[in-house]
Write a protein that binds this DNA or RNA. Structure first.
Ligand SMILES: [Mn+2]
Ligand SMILES: [Mn+2]
Ligand SMILES: [Zn+2]
Ligand SMILES: [Zn+2]
Lengths: 131, 131
DNA sequence: TATTGATTTAGAATTAGTCTAATTATAGAA
DNA sequence: TTCTATAATTAGACTAATTCTAAATCAATA
């Protein structure tokens, strides 16, 4: 995918089902959870297709992915820049939309020498239910 | 581990070897890489022991762990708060010590309602070698 | 030295994710 | 519409990462 690539993603009924599952959940679902829910509308869908669809949708910017230690990747209905808080006791993942100061981002770019694509602040701690 | 737990970690020779491997590398090594290097000083060490040691050292705050999508967990010799930049082309992981404004952290705590333990800014993009 | 609990070990098991090859669906050409 | 080419889907094998199990070993101390 180059920066000039403007092809519209092809949504087969399987990809649509996977996309709908992710869009309709507030949670950040794992591939297995997506598979279980996609089967409700498309009983014949295969595990491989769910993985294929997740990769395709991600490559086309239609879903996000968040990886956390000690568990499978989770997929995100929100594709705009945002942040996460992770409860180390129960695994809860909370979305946050923080205002990251431009000076902080600039500092990260300067220090790393990277061309930035995205950035995120992650907070690890304990959620209110787990105190 | 409670907040009042002050037991000193027990370092067997296997745990010491694993710890030394991580301390002596600037890179963020995977468990497999740690295993290979630990075998150089302790040829009989087992894979299970490396994993056990990594968990133990992490639980005792002697090493850090960073998980990234599409690859094994990587271990970090730096245990003080710091940030990472990840090259999406070659996988390079760069340490950064950024000054996160207190107001940003406060905002994250307020929005999430979490009791914070740690936090990190992650920058995804392209490193200078990969332009 | 004997006891005992912790640690290590080899290898089996599990989990997450990818790959393969055959089948099916779809879009465009004839 | 029918044919053909290409892409997508499928089942299941495969791989990689990590955890588990149970026996053996080690280390502290009674
Ligand atoms: Mn999110
Ligand atoms: Mn680091
Ligand atoms: Zn929690
Ligand atoms: Zn790179």
């Amino acid at each position: 995918m180059s920066a000039t690539d403007v092809r519209k993603p092809i949504l087969t009924k399987q990809r649509r089902a996977v996309f709908d599952v992710i869009q309709s959940s507030v949670d950040h679902l794992s591939a297995g959870e997506v598979f279980d829910r996609a089967k409700e509308t498309l009983p014949g869908i295969s595990f491989a297709t769910v993985y294929n669809a997740l990769r395709y949708l991600k490559e086309n910017g239609m879903i996000g992915e968040v990886s956390l230690s000690g568990g499978p990747a989770r997929f995100d209905r929100i594709t705009t820049r945002h942040d996460h808080a992770i409860c180390e006791a129960c695994g809860k993942l909370v979305d946050m939309k923080l205002e990251i100061p431009g000076s902080l981002l600039k500092s990260a770019i300067d220090v790393s020498g990277f061309k930035p694509r995205s950035f995120e602040l992650t907070l690890w701690g304990t959620c209110s239910q787990c105190v």
